[in-house]
Design a protein around this nucleic acid. Structure first.
Length: 569
RNA sequence: GCGCCCGUAGCUCAGCUGGAUAGAGCAACGGACUUCUAAUCCGUAGGUCGCAGGUUCGAGUCCUGCCGGGCGCGCCA
């Protein structure tokens, strides 16, 4: 790309001024009248050179200007002009041909455009959702799923070898409460008096599971809360709820590589082994009948109990065992996506792992805030009644998978998400998802009208330098920003940046497209008579289609070739 | 009380490792459009970036303190 070339040109000029290896940073000015690329080297060098920044900038500009007019190599870099502005910025304006040359790269790379190899194929695990199988997935799980899956997508696009993992907390106290809750409903089914236990589950699904057990087993567990009865209840409840969650996730287009069962850590003795390993570190002590780990030595706010007075482990111990297992499987990079309400657990888990020799800061956490659904500015109450919105399934059914995913991804994970139901249901391009999808579909429709297979549209023999209108330039520059943006979003674990980019780009595309409305400005349409223009614009349309599709792919959202209109009534 | 996160336009939010006049969408206001290329398009206005200091050529961005909101601080997960 031209940025590297300009960097060389600037460095060359600086060498002539006695400055070697300056750190020349180029960025795209926000204001297009400032040119296509700009650098602030003159400002950063002002101190070391002991000269005013503007003076330095002037000298650099005139040295580069001389090269351009003397017809040296610089001419080939596509620099049309250099100017000094503001406190000492150097602004470069590129030739149309130079700007448009990005289209060659886009079309050539096609569905790889935007990929990079920063991860160098190293394994990385993204753990997300990880809901307990104690009920249906709700909106918070949905947000976590959409964010986690998009982060995994970003890592994949930046060259990591990504594994998506789901950790089922299918052991421990919550599952016992679930089994007891089913047991109570089962008793009630047979007209017995039974209360849902403290901390139990009141959802309708519990009664449904109980009813199906009653059908299968008859009344043989009535009045009997023994090990066998609870085991049957537990097994049935977990199985049913897992199936339901899997079905929801699959419909939500989320697929995990590994489902890890907490219970397996108990079964093969790794919880016990982890406790032993921690004891050997000497950071463990007994107090009040419990076993504690000195997590404060690793920055936790207080020491934590790892084995309770009754001899059973707290959740903390299997958590440490689980992450030791991740590390042992070769995942030296791991990201856990979690609700912000669990942030208190991070320090202790990391401390436990550090005690066992893992590096500080392992694993990495991405926390997300809760979801609030609003319509017409008022909160939609998440009641349990039918037809209301409390589960992921209900929301997906109401507004569709693409809209649900996108809305969950479009805000940075930190900070609450206001899910505007009215906007989500809007099918015009006020709805950001449709805005982007429309832009994509419009490009496809152009190809169809031209009678061209989109893969046949290329840049060979096409004069891209005829793409000179402001609208065209703006779109091309937006497209060229995509690869850097993907790297950036991946590094920051921030899918919302992709959403933001897609909306901006789609906006530029839509207005470019609308400007060429045949009834207004037929000259600006893509499919004009002039073959040179038409081919160049087709290449641009094809590039737009590629970039939008790739961006949506990262987010796990469809890029439709045409929009299906939902019937009004 | 301690810890983490958040505070940017009326609303919902962007703002990459500090850079030029702080951006977008919705809402508002003003025009245009009558079947075309896809459920309209173009434009205008809108701001003490919570407050106060500090760091420096330069701060929405970094540091400190305060104010406001959320979450966490179990031998619950």
């Amino acid at each position: 790309m031209s940025a590297e070339a300009i960097r060389q040109v600037v460095n060359h000029a600086l060498t002539g001024m006695g400055v070697e290896d300056a750190d020349v940073r180029l960025e795209e000015p926000k204001d297009p009248t400032h040119g296509d690329l700009a650098t602030n080297v003159a400002l950063t060098l002002a101190k070391t050179l002991g000269r005013p920044p503007r003076e330095i900038a002037e000298e650099i500009a005139s040295r580069i200007g001389e090269e351009i007019t003397s017809g040296g190599d610089t001419k080939d870099f596509g620099i049309e002009s250099v100017s000094v502005a503001g406190p000492g910025f150097l602004n470069f304006k590129l030739s149309s041909a130079q700007v448009a040359s990005e289209l060659v790269e886009i079309i050539e790379a096609d569905d790889n455009y935007g990929r990079s190899d920063e991860g160098q194929g190293e394994p990385i695990m993204v753990e997300f959702v990880s809901a307990n199988p104690t009920g249906p997935l709700h909106l918070g799980h949905g947000r976590q799923g959409a964010i986690g899956d998009a982060i995994a997508g970003l890592l994949d696009w930046t060259g990591w070898s990504v594994s998506r993992e789901y950790y089922y907390n299918d052991a421990g106290a919550q599952i016992e409460r679930l089994a007891e809750s089913v047991w109570s409903r089962y008793q009630q089914h047979f007209g017995q008096d039974a209360e849902i236990p403290e901390g139990g589950y009141h959802g309708e699904y519990v009664a449904e599971i109980a009813a199906s057990l009653a059908e299968e087993h008859g009344d043989r567990f009535v009045g009997k809360q023994d090990g066998e009865a609870l085991e049957v209840m537990r097994e049935a409840a977990v199985r049913v709820l897992r199936e339901e969650q899997d079905r929801d996730l699959s419909e939500f287009r989320i697929h995990f590589d590994v489902y890890f069962l907490e219970s397996s850590l108990y079964e093969d003795g790794r919880v016990e082994a982890t406790a032993d390993a921690l004891r050997e570190t000497g950071k463990v002590y007994d107090l009040d009948g419990a076993v504690w780990l000195r997590t404060t030595e690793y920055g936790d706010q207080k020491d934590r109990v790892m084995i309770k007075g009754d001899g059973s482990p707290t959740y903390f111990l299997p958590d440490v065992a689980y992450h030791m297992d991740k590390w042992g499987r070769g995942f030296h990079h791991a990201i856990n996506v979690q609700g912000a309400d669990h942030h208190g657990t991070i320090a202790r888990v990391q401390a436990g792992l550090q005690a066992l020799g893992l590096p500080a800061g392992y694993p990495e956490y991405v926390l997300h805030q809760m979801v609030r659904v609003e319509q017409d500015g008022k909160e939609v109450k998440l009641s349990k009644r039918a037809g209301s919105l409390t589960t992921l399934r209900q929301l997906m059914t109401a507004v569709g998978v693409d809209v649900t995913r996108y809305f969950f991804q479009m805000r940075k994970a930190d900070g609450h998400l206001v899910f505007d139901l009215g906007l989500a249901l809007d099918q015009s391009d006020k709805n950001p998802v449709y805005k982007v999808q429309y832009a994509h579909a419009r490009m496809c429709s152009i190809f169809k009208k031209a009678g061209l297979e989109r893969s046949s549209i290329g840049t060979e023999g096409v004069d891209l330098d005829v793409l000179t209108t402001d609208g065209e330039r703006e779109v091309i520059k937006a497209l060229a920003r995509f690869p850097d943006l993907v790297s950036n979003a991946a590094r920051l674990r921030a899918p919302h940046l992709i959403c933001d980019y897609l909306e901006q780009t789609a906006g530029a595309v839509n207005s470019w497209y609308h400007a060429g409305n045949p009834s207004r400005n037929p000259d600006l349409a893509v499919l004009v008579e002039d073959e040179r223009l038409r081919n160049a614009r087709l290449a641009l349309a094809r590039s737009v289609q590629i970039v939008l599709r790739n961006g949506l792919a990262i987010l796990g959202i469809l890029a439709p070739e045409q929009m299906a209109r939902a019937d009004e009534d």
